[in-house]
Nucleic acid binder design. Structure first.
Lengths: 114, 114
DNA sequence: AGACATACTACATCAGACGTAGTAACGACA
DNA sequence: TGTCGTTACTACGTCTGATGTAGTATGTCT
């Protein structure tokens, strides 16, 4: 199980990735994250919905209400151009972050050497 | 430049890595991190020293005062067995975290496909 | 009727990273 | 002698993202 604090700063990226090709809504995104990660990461509802608010305020996503509903009426979100651009930045940043952190990580089978 | 919020949760790991083979102190660790990452990450003093406090409280490191000094007297830190064990856990966690996040990352040259 | 899935909102808390600021000892240099 | 640069910290406050707890509401399934 992953302590979600590590993921801090990448929840937005995860959501944006799932919005790249088509609009979606909270519950679906939540399910997709769970599936894609084989349940290794399950995003909390409050985390998800506060990410929506934050990202809409930042202009990365736009909401609209969908008609076809199962349960309560849904709010759909679509990614904006600013959102795509932000997503790309985060992907670049990730490569850098990974590079930095891995300087301080010893791979599993090498722990014996100290 | 890396926004340090991403690194959140791994500053302790970085410090522990540098303490694996020998005790060290604030300024030296700070320099080593800067060097190792080619200045891609520079740990802030406040971040570093509050990490020391936190980790000592958690029993991951132990402090002792060193004699040979240039400038003000130093506090040295050495890693404990609990610290080594925690470090190993963080390394494992990192592999998992990386795996999870990378499901949502598009590599640089593939951004054209959406 | 009650469980369960869907679809949220409100409010409070916590912790880690950071900003700002100040203290202090020593050497080097002018 | 003064002050600059390096070393070596401490104190305090702030910000933000993630989380906990709780509640509301609609529909389907049994």
């Amino acid at each position: 199980m992953i302590s979600s604090d590590i993921i801090r700063g990448y929840t937005d990226t995860m959501i944006l990735y799932l919005l790249l090709n088509e609009p979606s809504y909270g519950y679906e995104i939540s399910r997709k994250i769970k599936e894609l990660t084989d349940e290794k990461y399950i995003m909390k509802e409050t985390t998800l919905y506060s990410a929506f608010k934050r990202m809409e305020a930042n202009g990365y996503i736009e909401s609209f209400s969908g008609e076809e509903t199962y349960g309560k009426p849904r709010t759909y979100y679509k990614i904006t151009e600013a959102g795509k651009s932000y997503y790309r930045e985060k992907c670049e940043e990730w490569e850098l972050t990974k590079e930095v952190i891995e300087k301080f990580i010893v791979k599993e089978n090498n722990h014996e050497y100290y």
